[in-house]
């Protein structure tokens, strides 16, 4: 597969996943806002902190009101992580490698983009009542995933896409956990108080995790929620699940067996996977969840850079030795 194509597949998938998560972020925050006792501005600015968007936000907007933050995260074309920008970037990547996608995949990505663009053209209504738009974004994102599952051969292209999806999803689940944990549980002593359950349920719901959590653990307890979103091996949005899938995609691409590595991407992803395999939620909380998540995110960034180095900027040695490669490639 062409390096350029691999890179575009990777980024197309990251942007699609990012758009969906942006919608989830907004959704959980508006859910929490309904019963929130603190200041509206604190709640919504926490969302900006989670995305690392505070500085660029300040360039255009005065205060982090609900309306401003939603506009910024959903529709602001100047914000490169807004849903509108993510969809434009995902579609542009898809368009540049359209021949590597199946026709239904291209069409569903294009339709997703057109829907969001239409919503952006009626943004005032969408911002006053964001629920409908957010639902539509999530549903469209799932539609893309469904078409990928149903129509795309599990070849190299699929693995680069899957890698992009899982790295992005791992990052976003960790962020949603981080910011909400901070808001909901500023002091570990508050564990168990009455209001928590409603808010933690809202958090789980925003990652579509509430029902799955209930089946697994029943009652809502912060440590178990952390365990579920961070370390669960069956829930597809958990950090560990995503890192595990990222590792298997990298290994499928390079053909290196488990417990060994042939490039920096494999080394780093396997290290992170091992760390999660042997972690315990109560230890993580005891040692500081925020720090753990912070480290996790920088390790993910390291993996992203290593993927680029290992697969997108491959050193092309010319001359002798290539002739034998030729038959191998076929």
């Amino acid at each position: 597969m062409l390096c350029r194509v691999a890179e575009s597949l990777f980024w197309m998938s990251r942007y699609l996943e990012r758009a969906e998560n942006q919608a989830r972020f907004i959704d959980v925050t508006s859910n929490i806002a309904l019963g929130y006792r603190g200041r509206e501005l604190d709640l919504w600015s926490s969302l900006l902190h989670a995305g690392g968007d505070v500085e660029t936000f300040k360039e255009t907007y005065s205060a982090p009101t609900q309306e401003n933050v939603i506009r910024y995260l959903l529709f602001d074309p100047k914000n490169q992580n807004s849903v509108v920008s993510c969809l434009a970037a995902a579609r542009e990547n898809a368009r540049s490698i359209r021949e590597n996608l199946t026709t239904p995949m291209w069409e569903v990505v294009n339709q997703f983009y057109l829907r969001v663009r239409k919503a952006a053209s009626e943004s005032n209504r969408a911002i006053r009542q964001p629920h409908g738009v957010l639902e539509q974004i999530k549903r469209s994102a799932h539609q893309v995933l469904g078409v990928i599952q149903a129509t795309w051969s599990r070849g190299e292209a699929w693995h680069f896409s899957s890698l992009g999806y899982h790295l992005e999803r791992a990052d976003k689940t960790s962020r949603i956990l981080d910011v909400k944990y901070f808001i909901l549980l500023p002091d570990p002593m508050h564990v168990g108080s009455q209001v928590d359950v409603v808010q933690w349920a809202a958090l789980l719901e925003s990652t579509s995790a509430l029902e799955m959590y209930r089946r697994e653990y029943g009652r809502i307890e912060p440590a178990k929620v952390v365990d579920f979103l961070m370390l669960n091996t069956r829930f597809p949005r958990s950090m560990r699940f995503c890192v595990r899938d990222a590792e298997s995609s990298i290994r499928a691409i390079s053909g290196t067996p488990m417990h060994s590595f042939s490039n920096p991407a494999e080394q780093l992803v396997a290290q992170l996977n091992a760390k999660l395999n042997y972690a315990r939620a109560t230890d993580v909380i005891g040692n500081g969840l925020h720090q753990f998540v912070d480290d996790f995110q920088s390790q993910l960034n390291g993996i992203g850079a290593a993927v680029a180095e290992s697969f997108f900027q491959v050193n092309m040695n010319t001359g002798r030795g290539m002739q034998s490669q030729r038959s191998f490639m076929r």
């Binding site: 597969m1 062409l2 190299e156 691409i253 491959v314 040695n317 290539m322 030729r326 490639m329």
Partner: peptide, 12 residues
Amino acid sequence: MVWMKTTRGPQR
């Protein structure tokens, strides 16, 4: 010779 740059190195 003409090659394309792939994720596994050059291909004819």
